[in-house]
């Protein structure tokens, strides 16, 4: 029996793999959910920064560190880079008013290309990958196999989503970040400096990218231009989620992951159609529910 052209025995597998893939997509998008979703910074360089995280993870792994440990250790460094990047963006673009937004977008595209070329100059164009016990082996449950690398990404995504949701709702700075996203001027009336709060939040978003980058290279080999496919996917997840919602990001990641996985396994469609899924979903959501699934 087939449902929508896909044999019914493949459906379960497609959905299970889609859940794992979806959590991975949520993990790579959650930083953007903070920087674009909450702070309105059109950070198209987010995937490129993540690839830098992948390469840094590779470099540390090459010196004997576990990739996950490397990703965690890189977070504070990336936090500082994020703070500096935001300060530069703010001083050069944001401060000059709303019409600077498009130029800001061009700025982040520029940053993405510089990163890409920089990575090629340092590491070359070859793919890089890491090895660890949990890479290459699978958890076997009956006739189904779940790659451990995907389970690791799944776990990290859940931890990241949970931690960020908690941070934004339970800490003073977290609440201020949500407040600055909603009404910057009103927050200034409370004596808070919005620029300082936003640079802190952008730092967190960038710090999270380091760990997401580690996940990326755990899940599969990376190469310098890989950020391009992730621009579509990450923006799709963040907009689908409803800008700035962390649980929404997890849900949207799952939707994209499952949809892509079904397309991947579908006999009439296959891998070449997978990249179209993100943009099709984005178009459908924008026309039906522009504020996203969990929109503010």
């Amino acid at each position: 029996m087939t449902i929508l052209g896909l044999p019914s025995e493949l459906w379960f597998e497609a959905v299970m793999f889609g859940i794992l893939l979806g959590c991975f997509y949520a993990a790579v998008s959650i930083g953007l959910s903070v920087s674009f979703g909450l702070l309105d910074v059109p950070n198209v360089a987010h995937p490129a920064v993540m690839i830098v995280g992948s390469y840094c993870t590779w470099a540390l792994w090459d010196r004997g560190l576990d990739p996950i440990v490397a990703g965690v250790l890189l977070m504070p460094l990336f936090f500082v880079v994020g703070v500096l990047l935001y300060r530069f963006y703010h001083a050069s673009f944001e401060k000059r008013g709303t019409e600077a937004g498009v130029r800001g977008l061009a700025f982040f595209f520029g940053v993405a290309f510089i990163i890409e070329v920089g990575l090629i100059l340092i590491f070359g164009v070859d793919q890089r990958s890491v090895q660890a016990e949990y890479i290459g082996s699978s958890l076997e449950l009956g006739e189904y196999r779940f790659p451990y690398r995907m389970l690791v990404a799944f776990g990290v995504a859940l931890v990241l989503t949970f931690a960020l949701t908690l941070y934004l709702s339970k800490t003073f700075t977290g609440r201020a970040i949500k407040a600055v996203a909603q009404d910057e001027a009103a927050l200034r009336l409370m004596g808070a400096n919005p620029v300082r709060i936003k640079q802190w939040a952008f730092g967190i978003a960038t710090g999270v990218s380091a760990l997401a980058g580690a996940m990326l290279i755990i899940v599969g080999p990376v190469e310098p231009a890989m950020d391009r496919v992730y621009i579509g996917r990450t923006f799709c997840v963040v907009v689908l989620a409803g800008l700035g919602s962390m649980t929404g990001t997890l849900a949207a990641g799952l939707i994209l992951g499952i949809a892509e996985s079904i397309v991947l396994m579908h006999p009439d469609l296959g891998a070449s159609w997978a990249p179209a899924v993100a943009f099709s979903l984005l178009l459908i959501v924008l026309s039906v529910r522009p504020q996203g699934l969990f929109g503010r």
Partner: peptide, 12 residues
Amino acid sequence: FPTLTVKENLIV
């Protein structure tokens, strides 16, 4: 702040 709770609005 619409998506913050009453208490969060005050504490912030």
